[in-house]
Structures are given as structure tokens and as C-alpha cells.
Amino acid sequence: MTSKPTTPDALAPWGRDEDGRPMLPMGAHWTDVPELLEQHLAGIQARVDQAQPGTWFASPTAAAPDAVCTRHDGYTRTVGQFTNMLPGDLELTLHARSDLSWSLDLIAKLRTRVAELESATGTARAMHRKHPDSEHCQYDDMTWPCPTVTALGDPSEAAELDAMRADHPAPCRVPDSPDCTCPGEPTLPQCGKTVATNGNIYAPCARHAGHSAAYCRDSAHNHYFLAADTSGPTP
């Protein structure tokens, strides 16, 4: 018997399959799954670490034609040979290691900064709380919600998304899409709009009536369009 997928966690927001691999719902990208992103970055870092260090360059000497060399710790070493390589491809090869190292360092710095901002946001939320006896902020005594809380956004939105994911487990696309694909989910009336704002005619929109998505999607799933009539199905 197939075991039940696990519940979502920090590294696998949509849960894991019976083999422990992160699940990826339809409509999501692999970069939305932290564990897959970490694995990909670790692979890039491993390839960079295995490559020869130093500054790579094309050998200028006739004694080593068509050679890529590296200069490190005062020594020059041969990385490999290249033949009939286009200038643009050679330029990319020569800078690949240093460019990837720079990119990985930048990602690490940005992640550190994001962690700092998330910590500061948590501290601000803890300080700016509604007074239990009035419609004011306990910290700055301004009308609730105070400007700080308004700027930070409603923390309940994240909780609502988590609750929706619990009610609509993978592979259902809710809340990443307004179209529920849960087995046995009752069929909702379709939107049915066909006319776009530019006058083009499409197959009837297959989204449910009153969907929150900005664009309609035709029943063939080939086109997204902004409907001209936002009040109901096109006659």
C-alpha cells in the first residue's frame, strides 16, 4: 500500500511523497521548493570548488596554443585545451568560475540580509500590537492598525495560505491557482467569458465563475486574456 504523503515543512512547502522527495504541484516552479533550490545551489558550489582556482585566461604563447590556463599563488597551470571555439564561448568559459563564485557569494550575502530583515520584522511585529482596551497600538499609541503594521502587511495572510494548503494538498494547485483540482471537489459554474478587452474572441473561460485571477483562461488552456466584460459571462 502506498504511504500517505507527509505534511508540509519548511523545506517542502507542499509536503513529500512516499520516498521523502519534495512534492511540486502543477503551476509551481522548482525554485519555490527550498530543498530543491538548496540542492541545486550545492551542486553549483561543488562544481566551482572542484575547478582549478585562480584567474583563467587563454594562453598567449605559441608554445601552448589553444590552451586555457590559470594563474594562482604565483604559478601558471594549464586547465585544458580548446579548439575552434567561438570568441563568445571562450569568453564565457574563461569567466565561468569567477562569475559563479561571485554569484554564489552575492546569494549568501543577500540571504544574510533577508534573515536580518525577517528578524527585524518579527521584532517590529512583537512591539506593535493592538491595545486590548482600545483601537490603538501599544507601542506608538497610534490608531490601529498603526502605520508600521500596515507597512509590514497582515501576518494572517501567511497563516491563511498555510490553512488553504492543508485543505487542498498537492497536487491541487490552490492557493497558487484559483482552480481547485482536488479529487471529488464539487464542480463550480464556469466563468464562460469569451471577449477580450482588445476585441479578440476566445473559447469560453474555464475558470470558475467569479474567479479572483486577473486573466481568464480559455478551455483549451492555450490562451490567457483580460475579459472585456467583468460583470458576468459574455452572452
Rank of each mutant, 00 (worst) to 15 (best):
G54H: 00
T123N: 12
T78R: 15
G27I: 02
E160V: 05
L11C: 02
A64M: 13
S134G: 07
E35K: 13
A12Q: 08
G88W: 04
S98Q: 10
A166S: 15
G15F: 04
P178D: 15
P53I: 01
S103Q: 13
P87C: 00
Q50G: 08
A170Q: 02
E160L: 14
G80C: 11
D19K: 12
A28Y: 03
A62I: 08
P60T: 12
S231E: 05
S231H: 13
N198C: 13
A28Q: 14
D141K: 10
G54L: 01
P65D: 03
D140R: 03
A203Q: 12
H29Y: 09
L188R: 15
A108K: 12
H128P: 01
T6F: 04
L226G: 06
G153K: 02
P189V: 00
D17V: 04
T194L: 01
I201A: 15
R16Y: 05
E160G: 07
W144H: 10
R129H: 03
L36H: 10
A151D: 01
Q39A: 13
C205F: 09
E38P: 00
G20R: 08
E118S: 09
D32K: 13
L41R: 10
L41F: 06
G199P: 13
K4F: 10
A28F: 06
T78P: 00
H211G: 06
C146E: 02
P132K: 10
R173E: 15
T123F: 13
A108T: 15
G15K: 05
D19F: 12
Y224F: 12
A96V: 02
W30D: 10
E157H: 14
M127H: 07
R16T: 06
E38V: 14
P8L: 02
A115T: 08
G199Y: 08
G232F: 00
T2F: 09
H136K: 14
E160I: 02
Q190W: 03
Q52M: 11
V33P: 07
H223L: 04
N222A: 12
I44M: 04
H40A: 15
T150G: 07
H131F: 00
Y202M: 07
D140G: 01
A159G: 00
D179S: 07
L11R: 13
T83N: 07
D218L: 01
M127Q: 11
A196E: 01
W102A: 12
G80K: 01
S219E: 05
L104G: 04
K109L: 03
G15W: 06
D32T: 13
Q45V: 05
T83M: 04
H208W: 07
S59F: 01
E157L: 15
P169I: 04
G74C: 11
S103F: 07
D9Q: 08
H131Y: 01
R207G: 08
D218P: 02
M142N: 14
T78K: 15
G199N: 07
T150Q: 15
Y224D: 00
T31G: 01
R77G: 00
P147V: 09
P65A: 11
H40Y: 14
A163Y: 05
R111A: 06
D141H: 14
S98G: 05
G74F: 09
T76I: 14
T93I: 05
P22A: 02
A227W: 00
